[in-house]
Design a protein around this nucleic acid. Structure first.
Lengths: 201, 201
DNA sequence: CAAAATGTGAGTAAATTACTCGCATTCTTC
DNA sequence: GAAGAATGCGAGTAATTTACTCACATTTTG
């Protein structure tokens, strides 16, 4: 950031800029993401935007940081303790659907399209590590032991499958389809339940 | 197309342009896809490109058409007849992995980023209908009856889950990881096998 | 060989857009 | 309430980018 916002007014400005940026990025993709558009949508002047973000990339980074932390916060809320696999997965799926409902395309754009100056995007980022650890722990929990390497693979599968289903549902405008959601829960639950019984095939 | 290629030489030109276009689009995304770059990589002059493609969009359409037809061809090859669920799914997964291995990012870019003049991209395109019908038939086959609405949902789930896992594996450079592939097979098989026994939850 | 098909690539016109800067307004502080 | 700090403004620009043309060269065909 070029200048730290000190008053409440400027903090609100930064906030609306980030929100507007997320919206543009999610709806129009990286190719349609211009600083002037963001300022317009946010209802602030382009000059104000550049008072807090030294350049375009730093704005994307801020949006990414914000979005990924929102995702993690949502995930931390749905803990596995004491729930049946189905219940746990159901909570998780609903949480992820919610997280994607705000700006359906944003997640994919941030991970796939938009460049970044820091390393939040690469496959071994802190974010992705915590993200996958969370899943791996859940898998391990259902096998009644600490997570190991196999659980890590399972975590990848689960997280990526959920990601794919939600992403494509959003593309088709079916994010809120309850049948879709329950079937997704079933897909993951079956895998998670079975993962304890049989070893690697 | 602006002009139909009549000699073998020009047909080859069109071919290499489409190949180069697919490569650029897959590697650099829609934002990095310029006609000059494509001509360069193809080793033909920009003028030649515009002799067969009236504008940029028509080139993308040609690339999309080509890629989606390749996908369908791959899928038609792996028929479900007489195979166990696991065998069938294994074939399918390997086929899809192969289809994505050539230009890992292309599929996603074509579906998500790149605009289109025709309707190949929208969720109800001929392509997507045939694509999903194929899955729905397979699901129905395992329930020993004709496919119905529920199978169609199941088809969506399966196809999107596979898509998500493969896409993210590609992003992580893990497309050829055999553990990943076999776990993906297990995820889908379990769902497919269970789908016949229990009704909708 | 004539004519059709194909290939060439420098050049351009137009659009796009990230970012600056001089100044106006609002807030804090004493 | 005054001074100074913080914030807000937005027309303007400089630089880049890029889709596409056209006048001409080369190759193929009949």
């Amino acid at each position: 950031m070029r200048k730290e916002p000190r008053q409440a007014r400027s903090r609100a400005t930064v906030e609306t800029v980030i929100q507007a940026g997320a919206r543009i990025l999610g709806n129009e993709g990286w190719a349609g993401f211009t600083t002037n558009k963001v300022a317009d949508l946010a209802g602030v002047s382009i000059g104000s935007l550049y008072q807090y973000f030294p350049d375009k990339l730093s704005l994307v980074d801020a949006i990414r940081r914000r979005h990924l932390e929102d995702c993690l916060a949502v995930m931390r809320k749905s803990k596995a303790d004491g729930l049946s696999p189905v219940q746990f997965v159901a909570n998780l799926v609903h949480a992820m659907v919610d997280a994607h409902s705000i700006y359906p395309g944003l997640h994919r754009v941030l991970l796939d399209e938009a460049p970044s100056s820091d390393d939040y995007r690469n496959p071994n980022s802190e974010f992705e590590i915590e993200y996958l650890n969370y899943y791996a722990e859940a898998v391990g929990a259902y096998r009644n032991r600490l997570p190991n390497g196999a659980d890590h693979t399972a975590a990848l599968i689960i997280s990526d499958a959920i990601d794919g289903v939600i992403h494509n549902a959003a593309r088709r405008g079916m994010l809120t389809d309850s049948t879709m959601q329950s079937e997704l829960v079933r897909l993951v639950s079956l895998y998670l339940a079975d993962a304890g019984d049989e070893a690697t095939a």
